[in-house]
Amino acid sequence: MDTSTSWTMPGPGWLFCPADRPERYAKAAAAADVVILDLEDAVNPADKPAARQALIDAFNGDGAPDVETTVVRVNAATTDEFAADLACLEQLPVRRVMLAKTETRADVDALPDHDIIALIESPLGAVNAAEIAAAPNVAGFMWGSEDLTAGLGGRRSRLADGSYHPIVQQVRGNVLLAAKAHGCFALDSVFMDIGNLLALRAEADDAVAIGFDAKVAIHPKQVATIRDAYAPTDEQIDWATRLMDAAKRERGVFTFEGQMVDGPVFKQAEQILRRAN
């Protein structure tokens, strides 16, 4: 699915917000570019009915959340909660839905009227990522490390130095490849150590460098760090602007400030200017 023609991502700082805390909806929206109202892990099983009702009330009342900057995360298609989540979605104007623990194409097919962000966080989902990406209503991907590690039978997703274990990095890369191969956007996973903004910045910088379109936060204080990582520097903006101006006077491949300019370099310049705007 080519999401560039259907939805322009508002920005790179996404934020989870528990759906059973409607008093936080507006605060989350003010802090982040996109808010994910969560019916899954952020809500205790006993509170899920109240969370669904809170969503229905919010979207049908005054000051409703902006549907262009709101995503609803629903429970996995294989859970007993999924049918109730579907009934809730029928009463909401939200177009974009994050499907927890997406594992097969059939999971996505159960939501044909929504643009799906497939959350890959299990071994089965990881090996089926390319098949899932081919579904026409899959708009984007996110991946998760902790459920993945538990599904592998492991104890922790990171090494002693804080970097991801190689098998986790492999899944991260495979999800990114599946997304980009099918024209989907890709969201990098959450960073759990809320107070360690320096490590978050390093991980966000890596997400920018490798091609993730955004990174998801679990606390509002993380959003500014993510945005800063995605914001081009003045030098990058100046370079991209001058390159695009030079391209107007050239035909085909040309040399700009000692660098050969072809399709990939153009894309880099265009990406910088899009992020700058």
Rank of each mutant, 00 (worst) to 15 (best):
A229K: 03
A229D: 06
A229W: 04
A229P: 12
A229M: 05
Y230S: 02
Y230C: 05
Y230T: 03
A231M: 13
A231F: 09
P232A: 04
P232V: 00
P232G: 01
P232E: 01
P232L: 02
T233E: 07
T233P: 14
T233N: 11
D234C: 04
D234W: 04
D234G: 02
D234N: 06
E235Y: 06
E235H: 09
E235K: 10
E235T: 07
E235S: 11
Q236S: 04
Q236M: 10
Q236C: 09
I237C: 14
I237H: 05
D238R: 10
D238K: 06
D238H: 12
A240F: 13
A240M: 08
A240I: 01
A240T: 00
A240K: 00
T241I: 07
T241H: 06
R242Y: 08
R242A: 14
R242T: 05
R242G: 10
L243V: 01
L243S: 04
M244C: 09
M244H: 08
M244A: 08
M244L: 15
D245Y: 06
D245K: 13
D245S: 13
A246P: 07
A246K: 02
A246C: 08
A247I: 01
A247Q: 06
A247H: 09
K248Y: 09
K248D: 08
K248G: 13
K248L: 11
R249I: 00
R249Y: 11
E250T: 01
E250L: 00
E250S: 10
E250C: 11
R251L: 08
R251N: 11
R251Y: 12
R251M: 13
G252Y: 09
G252D: 05
V253I: 13
V253S: 11
V253A: 15
V253R: 04
V253H: 08
V253K: 04
F254A: 00
F254W: 09
F254I: 02
F254C: 04
F254S: 03
F254T: 00
T255S: 15
T255M: 14
T255V: 12
T255N: 15
T255G: 13
F256Y: 08
F256L: 02
E257L: 03
E257G: 04
E257A: 09
E257Q: 07
E257C: 07
E257D: 11
G258Y: 03
G258H: 07
G258K: 03
G258A: 00
G258M: 03
G258V: 01
Q259A: 15
Q259R: 08
Q259K: 10
Q259P: 06
Q259T: 12
Q259G: 10
M260Q: 03
M260L: 14
M260R: 03
V261K: 07
D262Y: 01
D262M: 05
D262C: 05
D262E: 13
D262R: 00
G263M: 13
G263P: 05
G263W: 06
P264H: 03
P264G: 01
P264T: 04
P264A: 02
P264S: 04
V265E: 12
V265D: 15
V265N: 10
V265S: 05
V265G: 15
V265M: 13
F266C: 07
F266E: 00
F266R: 03
K267R: 10
K267W: 14
Q268H: 09
Q268D: 10
Q268I: 08
Q268L: 14
Q268C: 06
A269E: 02
A269M: 05
A269W: 01
A269R: 02
A269K: 05
A269V: 02
